[in-house]
Amino acid sequence: MHELAVTESILELANQAASENGASRVTEIFLTIGQLSSIVADSVQFYWDHISKGTPSEGAILHFERVPARLHCKDCGESYQLSEELLPCPACGSIALEIISGEELQIDHIEIMKEKDDTTG
């Protein structure tokens, strides 16, 4: 739903990291997006192509690592992967559940390119 706001944050973080590291370009960005973050990667890519134009991140390739939602049952200890629909613990029927993974929405690392200068090589 709010992929534009998310994409703007990614751009800001990437450009900021580039300037802090004296880089002229960002070439790749590695993202982790959990199933429960309700972010659609295709929409992020769509906005990215538009808003990164004219910035150091223009043309950078976005890599998405999607993390499925996993739940843990506090009653019987069972762990299971959430399908589209929320269901009680498949082993014991309990609804005392906690989320182990799937809420991630983060930028992990980027690849940057520095302008060649006279001191190198």
């Binding site: 990437a14 590291n21 929405l105 983060q106 690392h109 980027i110 690849e111 940057i112």
Partner: peptide, 16 residues
Amino acid sequence: MTQRVEIVRKILDANE
């Protein structure tokens, strides 16, 4: 040559 920069930041960090 590209260089890897670790960031590991939540994307909605600024909002938080």
